[in-house]
Design a protein around this nucleic acid. Structure first.
Lengths: 227, 227
DNA sequence: TCAATTTTGTGACCCCTTTCACAAATCCTA
DNA sequence: TAGGATTTGTGAAAGGGGTCACAAAATTGA
């Protein structure tokens, strides 16, 4: 068994993956500036982490640097993208076109290019189409949730974005699972569980704000969050 | 020195604060259902964590339970809110009214009641007012960024939400610091640094999506994120 | 009142992540 | 070609957070 597939030998910390994403962003910036080589020390500084941390993170996946030199920006960036899977095109669907869902649709061009929203679902399309069209500036297509299985297959949806009220989150997740959508980004502040093989990531604005509020309430002062 | 101020003796893990926010949400639900008492085991189950974890988290701040009984829902909820600072009214300002900023404004009623958006800033208000009004359905007030210092003081703004392009993030952060706004919620995918006494929390959609993509790319399968 | 039951609070252990420190590898210059 | 400088990759140490297991405290029922 050669070192073909990563992650068979060690489990990669979530934190490492988060940092890789950060490195990726920094590297893109550097690449844009035409910089060819970067040291772990410089990359670390740009990302506000420890230099050894940078090297350890990368070491999980291979040897990408040259001793005495550093890392080739372009090469490292490509490798990180390969690791993260962000070289692939990911197709998303937003479910629940209320304020949040509509906001996400209009925000879509802010997302990195390899993530695209290819469908919008709601339980009552006629009711919400006006709102979305207003935002998008054209007659919008909002599909009834009961067609999600068929549409998910047709459009090869990878990620479902739950933007419904919390009470509906679990049943929407169930539909996504049934439809074979393996990734779920959950904006509804509710516990969602899925079977093995599926992945849920929560984005709870209230939790983030509560965190901020806590830090502001304490006299602790200085804190830059890197989560 | 009595046990007046928390956190003088131990540093509280970020993860603990995140979980407190989660407990808070569960407790609110229980309170709504009229439940009077809850055990660490039940609360843990609702929040998908270990029961000992719940007790440890709470133990950082005091003794809120009764052995052999459990925790009084209302009492515990109040205590957690006090700890998090989420019993206070927090006033926010959104800076940068592009797609994202406008989306956040229209999303504002989704936020928990104790967080309210009280101002919107942009470098070119006339240009963006149309867009915001369209979303909010009324003539919107967007203030020029150069008035932020004065307005922040008048309206007692606690938290600044950076929704500008990444290139402007740091300079907006500098303005917020100057204006004495201690909390920053940063949606712009860029490194932002602030002096001691100020707090930055990042919300990078690309990082979250990269994480999801990574998990989907690996054969690891099962994973429910609790970050 | 006392024994059985429940459930908290917490010390001790364990594991994982981060940091440190240095050998190994490469470059550069003379 | 050799010596000095730089920077990676990594074993070892340190630090932190999570889990376990149990004593302490409260309740219940006889």
């Amino acid at each position: 068994m050669k070192g073909v597939t990563k992650l068979k030998y060690k489990k990669i910390p979530e934190a490492t993956i988060r940092r890789l994403s950060r490195y990726s962003r920094s590297l893109e910036e550097m690449e844009g500036k035409g910089e060819k080589v970067v040291s772990s020390a410089l990359l670390a500084k740009k990302c506000a982490v420890n230099a050894a941390q940078v090297r350890k993170d990368l070491a999980y996946f291979g040897e990408f640097g040259i001793r005495g030199v550093g890392y080739y920006v372009e090469d490292l960036l490509n490798n990180i993208k390969k690791i993260l899977g962000s070289n692939k095109e990911w197709k998303m669907a937003v479910i629940g076109i209320g304020n949040l869902g509509a906001a996400l649709l209009s925000y879509k061009d802010f997302l990195k290019q390899n993530y695209t929203i290819v469908a919008a679902f709601d339980i009552d399309p006629p009711r919400v189409i006006g709102r979305v069209s207003e935002k998008l500036g054209k007659p919008a297509e909002v599909i009834h949730i009961n067609r999600i299985k068929e549409v998910a297959r047709e459009r090869k949806i990878d990620i479902g974005v739950i933007a419904t009220p919390p009470s509906e989150a679990q049943s929407v997740a169930n539909l996504l699972v049934e439809a074979g959508v393996r990734g779920i980004l959950n904006f509804a502040p509710a516990q969602v569980t899925v079977p093995a093989g599926f992945v849920v990531k929560d984005v709870f604005f209230t939790t983030i704000l509560d965190n901020l509020a806590y830090l502001l309430s304490t006299e602790t002062g200085y804190s830059i969050d890197r989560k």
